[in-house]
Design a protein around this nucleic acid. Structure first.
Length: 371
RNA sequence: GUGGGUAUAGCUCAGCUGGUUAGAGCGCCAGAUUGUGGCUCUGGAGGCCAAGAGUUCGAAUCUCUUUACUCACC
């Protein structure tokens, strides 16, 4: 019996969005789901207990970063990523393809793989699809991503096509190398902002998708409308029997728009990043708690929120922490922002279950939360 | 009381021998942040240059007076 299984539990009659369950060796995830990002084997400032308290079911970690530091061999000797970071629920690791694209300046891409220098010390490294699989295998996440090439928004058709085709050939090599039955490999669809390339990439990736497929190369600087167009183009062609994962998204508006377009899984650094810079998502829209307006605001960040932060602290206190550069500010706001997004996903699932996601969408779009 | 020093943005200070709309850092105010290089980036407001008088075509800058602060000595 497979250690992975995806079941659609309900399809919204209004929108076609679905609620599903994805079984993994470390537990079952209910989709649509938002996955907090823990790049370096930690969701910055939060403990695994915090994550469970805000309702996180699965977190994302990063092959590139863990390979660089402390080294995947060390994580393996520690007993794997779950044990190393004391998180016993599902983990997904990104392959490092995107990090090579976004972090490394001296990178050289060939059909064989990518040579690049470390953002930490400039040392030279090479990743091939096979090696990326070996590293992800050593880390031991439940879901592992194929090694891909993400082309930049604005890339020419020719370049986007070659990057997409290279990603497909790399996918085949990842697939052949991968053999661990405790890990599920997700292909990544590329194709930049070109509809025909997206469709070709999706179609040719599907044979390698067993229990999930990812959409990469979006939310890389293009207008949101363009991203939605690409999702609309792909939507009729997804396999029904597996979750679709939109990588690197998103903000509250993008989550709702994404689910409406058939997406089941999301990850994004945005809730924790804006938290560290003093901004919160609330039921009344984005609140820059750092602003002077909250100096003497002794009310909670979000009166409609049940998170630890909102139940115990005031905006004036949070603003003080931010201004004093106290680390508790990052922690409380991260806690709140992740809670907010996970709670938003919960509301979305409730709307799907009651076949009213379009109604939910209309109301949400007219609220200050849509941003 | 005597002698010296200093007064420029909210704070700490730059402004060379006088020359167009007086600058910086921090702070303050406001934005940004989408498969994370945590504490970043981008904007903005804010000065009768202590007060008064002189010299000069022209003064934050030179001279004098006053005031405040400060140091040393009696």
């Amino acid at each position: 019996m497979s250690k992975f299984e995806y079941k659609v539990l309900h399809t919204c009659k209004q929108s076609g969005a679905r609620i599903g369950e994805l079984k993994t060796p470390h537990g079952t995830i209910t989709t649509p789901v938002f996955m907090p990002v823990g790049t370096q084997a930690t969701v910055k400032s939060l403990t695994p207990e915090d994550l469970k308290n805000v309702g996180a079911e699965i977190i994302l970690s990063n092959t590139y970063h863990l390979y660089m530091r402390p080294g995947h061999d060390i994580v393996k000797r520690a007993g794997g990523l779950h044990k190393f970071m004391a998180w016993d629920k599902p983990i997904l690791t990104d392959s490092g393809g995107f990090q090579v694209f976004s972090l490394s300046d001296l990178r050289k891409i060939t059909d064989d793989g990518v040579s690049f220098s470390s953002h930490l010390d400039g040392s030279k490294h090479t990743f091939t699809p096979e090696y990326a699989m070996d590293v992800e295998n050593a880390l031991g996440a439940d879901i592992i991503m194929a090694f891909d090439e993400c082309s930049a928004a604005g890339a020419s058709y020719e370049y986007a096509k070659s990057a997409m085709e290279r990603t497909l050939s790399w996918l085949k090599r990842c697939y052949d190398r991968h053999s661990n039955e405790n890990q599920m490999l997700f292909p990544i669809v590329q194709g930049n902002m070109y509809a025909d390339l997206r469709l070709q990439s999706l179609k040719e990736s599907i044979p390698y998708a067993r229990c999930g497929i990812a959409i990469g190369g979006l939310s890389v600087g293009e207008p949101k409308e363009t991203m939605y167009e690409m999702l609309d183009v792909m939507r009729p062609h997804y396999p029904e029997n597996m979750p679709r994962y939109l990588m690197g998204v998103g903000s509250p508006d993008c989550l709702v728009e994404g689910v409406l377009r058939g997406i089941d899984m999301f990850d994004c650094v945005i809730p924790t990043r804006i938290a560290r810079n003093g901004t919160a998502y609330t039921s009344k829209g984005k609140v820059v708690v750092r602003n002077g307006a909250y100096k003497e605001d002794f009310t909670p960040l979000d009166e409609n929120c049940d998170c630890y932060c909102c139940k115990n602290f005031t905006k004036a206190y949070l603003r003080h922490l931010i201004n004093a550069e106290e680390i508790l500010a990052a922690r409380l706001l991260s806690l709140h922002n992740i809670y907010y997004l996970i709670n938003l996903m919960k509301k979305i699932r409730e709307a799907i279950l009651s076949d009213s996601l379009i109604d939910f969408y209309k109301e949400f779009k007219n609220s200050p939360q849509y941003q």
